Amino acid sequence: MSLLFPLNSQTPYYVILGNGDYPSRQLTKTLLLSADKIICADGGANYAFRNDITPNLIIGDLDSIKDEALNYFIQKNTRIIKAESQQQNDLEKTLREVSKMSCEQIVMLGFMGKRDDQSIVTLQIAKKFIKKFQTTIYSTVSEIMLLQPGSYSLKSLLGSQISLLGFPRAYEVSTTGLKWGLNHEILSEGSRGISNRAETNEIRIRFTKGLLLIVRDLSTV
């Protein structure tokens, strides 16, 4: 499998585990093996417990973590930060803590799929922290990357399905390596940019302003 992530393979990354749906076991294992740290957002500790994963840190109000998992990690002396605020969900609390650390790239697993409202909020929260982290999110079916303005070279596989979406807008978007190339175009809310195809093993993307969501169908890689 050829992943778009990481953009910078020399930069360590943290994996954040949530309480939602996960991609394949193989992909999850691959991402966890190379992680510099594994951090659970509250109920993400249930996934860690079920799969014999020892996180470096658990953060949240602890209302979603099962007693069995919580007691297990307490016995293992896992660091736990209890964050009581009801004004933020557990992902936002977790990212606020992580933003205090020396981390530039994060991977988020288990934050998409179970509830549509939570999936939408996950993208909104990732946007709030765009200046802090390069963020890649994995659902059961997609690899989702949120990009700031700049020039990017992304590894891909010939024929893989990839969408470029303004979030809400991206300006002067140009690409090479895609079936339907873009040349200094504006991507705004709507279907423009969806369901493109990689024609080479490397995609180049450049844009000057706004934010861009890259969404790739994992079934085509």
Rank of each mutant, 00 (worst) to 15 (best):
Y13A: 00
D61L: 01
M145E: 04
F207Y: 02
I81E: 12
T220M: 08
L31K: 08
S191D: 15
L57I: 13
E202F: 01
Y171T: 10
K209N: 15
L158H: 14
F167L: 14
N71H: 14
M112G: 07
I53W: 00
D36M: 01
E199R: 03
K100A: 07
I120E: 10
Q105K: 12
T11I: 09
A48N: 04
S2P: 10
N19K: 09
L95V: 00
F133H: 01
I38M: 01
D36E: 08
M108V: 12
S174V: 02
G60R: 02
H184G: 14
L178T: 11
T200W: 07
V221S: 13
I80K: 11
I65D: 03
E185N: 14
Y22L: 03
I65V: 10
A48W: 00
E104Q: 14
K76A: 10
L32V: 05
E104I: 02
L31H: 04
I162G: 10
L213Y: 00
L17Y: 02
T122E: 05
I205F: 06
R197I: 11
G110Y: 03
P23A: 03
C103H: 02
G190E: 08
Q148E: 08
A35Y: 07
T200E: 03
L157H: 13
K114R: 15
F133L: 00
S2E: 12
E202I: 01
T136M: 05
L211V: 14
T94H: 07
T220F: 00
G150T: 02
C40L: 05
F49A: 05
G177L: 07
G60V: 00
P149L: 01
L165N: 13
H184F: 01
R169T: 15
T54I: 09
M101F: 06
R169E: 15
K93S: 03
D42W: 04
V173A: 00
P55Q: 03
L31M: 05
E104W: 00
Q105E: 13
K132Y: 09
K82C: 10
S119T: 13
V141A: 15
T78L: 04
I53H: 06
G193V: 02
L218H: 13
A41N: 08
L178F: 08
T140Q: 14
E199Y: 02
E84I: 04
N8T: 06
Q75R: 14
S2D: 12
E143N: 02
E199M: 01
Q88N: 15
I194C: 15
V121F: 06
G18R: 03
Q10K: 13
C103Q: 00
L32G: 11
L7V: 00
P168A: 10
S163V: 04
A170C: 06
T30Y: 11
E92Y: 02
S9W: 01
L178H: 11
S219R: 06
F207R: 11
D36V: 01
L91G: 11
